[in-house]
Nucleic acid binder design. Structure first.
Lengths: 173, 173
DNA sequence: AGTCTTTACCTGTTCAGGCAACTACACCAG
DNA sequence: CTGGTGTAGTTGCCTGAACAGGTAAAGACT
């Protein structure tokens, strides 16, 4: 913000290699308007989530695990990884912290000695309403001042970006 | 397990024709369509950035510091914090790592003994084109398949979300 | 049966990011 | 000149997140 932003919304990739002028477009920042917009929204969203979750003693990321467990009951750890799109190592430690905090319990599967079943504790139910309220507050904050049409538009637009990024990510692998 | 579940909060978030993954969503998930969309986009964006930046030896977040320095020259550390919206503690350690990697140099300000001036090294210039190319690739990946109109729409929509979140964040403080 | 591969989970390491507490310095009011 | 206040930077501590490596179990295949 408040940058010169000379050419306004110019195309991000202008093949300037044609001319000898080599002005070089020094502003590598304005060239990534979408990148920066995504980064800023992501940071604000995560920061606000962190502020709200702090009040109930959770850290960002943990609430997703808890909501998954509350909604769908005991699950294998690897399913949590798959459903939340997380990393197995991250999930291991997140679950360990949630276990230490008394919000989940773990026990080995009787049919497969590799798998660990994770289930929410009764004590965690006291959090459920708070977390769901936080989730709704977060949604409301992100959409504040939007008409329903604009909210729907936002979801559509984010879906398009997600689809593009998912395609690029799979190609990268 | 199914509590009344805030029956009255059925805001018009239906817009079910949007999600790329059209699996059925329980209440606490569909109630946060925008939340989940933001989280997924943020994760994919960061992951893709990490994959691309890894090739040049940078970690996500460091490229923002370097681009800021390349574009605007030596700056005070606190200005980097303010401009990038980061945390002072994080900036300290990020700069230290960039210094160890030989990409930036630090020296105290002659006029104010508190401040540290950070400047990019000549060696870092070898990275500049690569990083800017990565930044453009990332932008292209995020916008792949979009018409210019849809790209502009995406930036506007993200701007609206950012504005809403910023408002909520400041109120929360 | 024996070997190979895959799966599930854990640990070590590194980094970003945030809060809290602290030091050093600058500035201002008296 | 002194004391209070604000600023700049650092470190400690905790967490999420990703990668690499390792272990144990389950399957698959000879």
């Amino acid at each position: 913000m408040s940058q010169p932003e000379t050419a306004g919304t110019r195309r991000p990739i202008s093949a300037d290699t044609t001319g000898p002028t080599n002005v070089r477009m020094p502003d590598s920042v304005s060239a990534g308007a979408l990148n920066h917009a995504i980064l800023r929204v992501a940071r604000l969203h995560r920061m606000l989530a962190g502020q709200l979750l702090r009040k109930v003693g959770l850290h960002p990321g943990q609430e997703l695990v808890m909501m998954q467990l509350w909604d769908h009951g005991p699950q294998r750890q690897t399913d949590l990884v798959r459903l939340l799109g997380s990393d197995a190592a991250t999930m291991t430690r997140t679950i360990q912290r949630l276990e230490n905090a008394g919000f989940v319990r773990r026990h080995p599967s009787p049919t497969d000695k590799r798998v660990t079943i994770v289930e929410p504790t009764a004590a965690s139910n006291a959090l459920r309403n708070d977390v769901e309220q936080i989730w709704m507050d977060l949604e409301t904050s992100a959409a504040e001042g939007m008409t329903p049409a604009r909210l729907a538009e936002a979801v559509v637009v984010l879906g398009r970006i997600e689809e593009s990024l998912a395609r690029a990510t799979s190609q990268e692998a």
